[in-house]
Design a protein around this nucleic acid. Structure first.
Length: 575
RNA sequence: GCGCCCGUAGCUCAGUCGGAUAGAGCAUCAGCCUUCUAAGCUGAGGGUCGCUGGUUCGAUUCCAGCCGGGCGCACCA
């Protein structure tokens, strides 16, 4: 719809240029928004005002020229108005809005999807939590955001794949092994020195207990170093297994798992660094090897190989991203915790060092989640390992509710997450508000079929009866979905869709409350239904409209990775 | 000290490639269920868009400087 109008405006502009009425060489982007007030029409554009400078004319005059050159004016618009400085207020013919419903019915699940990504390949790296403990709430937000970004990109025609980078090499693995080993010893009645900076969480003891059960029979034959190594690898496998399970039960499916250790084994780190060395982007100083990150806008150069000969974390990451690039992705998206924002320039320097524009890597930052219970902050201490896990949250509030909350706000801002609110099955809970809108429409189908009313098809229904402002308001919101989806995907900001769905659901609930869709079951209410002009034709048209609303809510929830239930369970609703 | 992010209603937050009287939810108050699910709806009150300048016909939006909060500034990951 918006597209049609923009095209019409551009045609008018070009026509005016040919007649010599306008002379701006390149048109600015033709803005077209739903204005704030209904009396300003359905769509408003500010092109005339933005052309004022280059045309050296009054905005109002330019607007007039555009209007005069609108060749399809009568086919498209009921009303075209020029207001004060130079706003162009357009009221689109209802028949065009009604067409939107047919589009939705025809396109179904693909309504809103586009191909502007042109099949370009994208790798979305997300979660990537160290396999040294269970996922916590912050990881949950990262998982929800990463998955939503991935699905959004796919929805606009990219070919996106999700990957989890496993930090299974280096220091934290050693610490994990040492921590588990120490607990193992304690469980065996021996005193052990717990490593400084070790993992203190109680889950370590639980893991040690399980490992002890497995190893007790052979433990005697192992020297301490071997035993610790066994502890390390068994603990790693167990913890990564928990992570996989947690993600699965959260409804997150990671297509690809990439091991950091594999980079060491395959010599990929050496190769990646050699390539940089060959381009003189590495230098040796004070016994260490440095990457010239400052050449590409980072604030300083960075060590990749330490004096002791060990690679830094950055070296692995260089090799990892080198590998991603070699796999032929056109765009790399990394979902990072916001505390890693300082790392971004470094990684973008790496992109450039390998000859790619820094925009080829886009980093989505995800801020911390502040957990509340009834408005009181739930304190978490990383040091003692005493934190609320993602598992506990989804067990308590459910996957859909958790995801919706994680996706409600711009990911780069702090999020307050009230557990009590999130699990409430009430009107205070936006998740159910949206899902309920979907379920309500599904319920309509059930009641309709009980009363012998068959569901009308969009193509065979006369939709011109849909002229009520509430009906048109609903359609206009539906018409905006493709734009919202596209903008949301291009900005890597899923919360725009979440917000849109709440608005759409609100319109639906209002409509549902105000207008009847099905004729009443009895005959007593004939007058009431007549007052709202409820004829069989109107019922059919409204049912088609409801089908379109249902479809869009479904599509929106789906792109966010949420379910669209056909009915709500009322088990805990009334107290 | 330097860098990044945030500062919008009592609370939590949308909106910001510059536009017309700044929005939603919660909370508060007043209403709506013999009718398609009240997990819903209607109405009311509530704001110097952190402050000060600048650019502009026009700034909550862009720029600069301040103030307040968070995070980051390792041969840790």
């Amino acid at each position: 719809m918006q597209e049609k109008v923009v095209t019409a405006l551009l045609t008018a502009l070009n026509g005016a240029k040919q007649k010599g009425q306008l002379r701006t060489p390149v048109w600015p982007t033709v803005s077209l928004d739903a204005p704030k007030r209904p009396e300003w029409g359905d769509l408003a554009s500010t092109v005339a005002m933005s052309l004022a400078a280059s045309e050296q004319k009054a905005p109002h005059d330019i607007a007039q020229i555009i209007v005069d050159n609108l060749s399809e004016r009568d086919q498209l618009f009921d009303r075209v108005e020029i207001v004060r400085p130079g706003f162009l207020n357009l009221t689109v013919k209802p028949t065009l809005w009604q067409e939107v419903i047919r589009d939705i019915a025809r396109q179904g699940r693909s309504y809103g999807r586009t191909d502007i990504g042109k099949g370009r390949r994208v790798l979305v790296e997300y979660v990537s939590a160290n396999p040294t403990g269970p996922l916590h709430v912050g990881h949950g937000r990262g998982a929800a955001v990463g998955q939503a970004v991935l699905r959004l990109l796919n929805a606009i025609g990219y070919d996106a794949v999700g990957e989890y980078y496993i930090n299974d090499a280096g220091r934290q693995m050693k610490l994990l092994g040492a921590s588990v080993y120490a607990r193992y010893q304690e469980l065996s009645g021996r005193t052990a020195t717990f490593p400084e900076d070790g993992y203190h969480g109680s889950y370590i003891t639980a893991v040690a207990q399980q490992i002890k059960a497995q190893l007790d029979s052979v433990a005697e034959k192992l020297n301490p170093a071997d035993l610790e190594a066994r502890c390390r690898s068994l603990a790693y496998e167990m913890l990564l297994g928990f992570i996989r399970e947690d993600l699965r039960s959260f409804g997150i499916e990671i297509q690809s798992w990439f091991s950091e250790a594999s980079l060491l084994e395959s010599k990929a780190i050496e190769q990646a660094l050699d390539e940089l060395k060959a381009r003189e982007l590495l230098f040796h100083q004070e016994g260490a090897w440095w990457f010239r990150a400052s050449l590409y806008g980072d604030e300083k150069d960075r060590v990749v190989k330490k004096q002791d000969g060990e690679y830094t974390y950055l070296a692995s990451d260089i090799a990892y991203h080198h590998d991603k690039l070699r796999r032929g992705y056109d765009l790399l998206v990394n979902v990072f915790g916001a505390d890693h924002h300082g790392y971004v320039p470094r990684m973008q320097a790496v992109m450039q060092a390998y000859g790619h524009p820094k925009e080829r890597l886009h980093v989505v930052l995800v801020q911390l989640v502040k957990l509340l219970r009834d408005g009181v902050e739930v304190k978490m201490s990383k040091r003692t390992g005493d934190f609320i896990t993602m598992r506990e949250v989804i067990d308590e509030v459910g996957s859909d509710a958790a995801k919706f909350y994680f996706l409600m706000r711009d990911s780069k801002t702090h999020l307050e997450f009230d557990l009590e609110l999130a699990k409430q099955h009430s009107n205070d809970n936006p998740v159910y508000y949206v899902q309920y809108a979907h379920a309500r429409i599904c319920s309509l189908w059930r009641v309709a079929s009980e009363r012998g009313i068959t569901r009308p098809t969009a193509s065979e229904t006369d939709l011109t009866v849909l002229t009520d402002p509430d009906e048109l308001g609903l359609i206009k919101k539906l018409a905006a979905y493709p734009e919202v989806l596209e903008a949301s995907a291009l900005a890597f900001e899923p919360h725009r869709v979440t917000y849109y769905l709440q608005q759409l659901a609100a319109l639906l609930h209002t409509f549902y409350n105000k207008h009847r869709i099905l004729p009443p079951a009895g005959e007593s209410d004939i007058d009431e239904s007549a007052a709202d002009g409820l004829t069989p034709g109107r019922t059919a048209a409204r049912l088609v409209l409801m089908g379109a609303v249902q479809q869009v809510i479904h599509n929106g929830l789906d792109v966010l990775g949420l379910s669209a239930p056909e009915q709500m369970s009322f088990t805990t609703s009334h107290e």
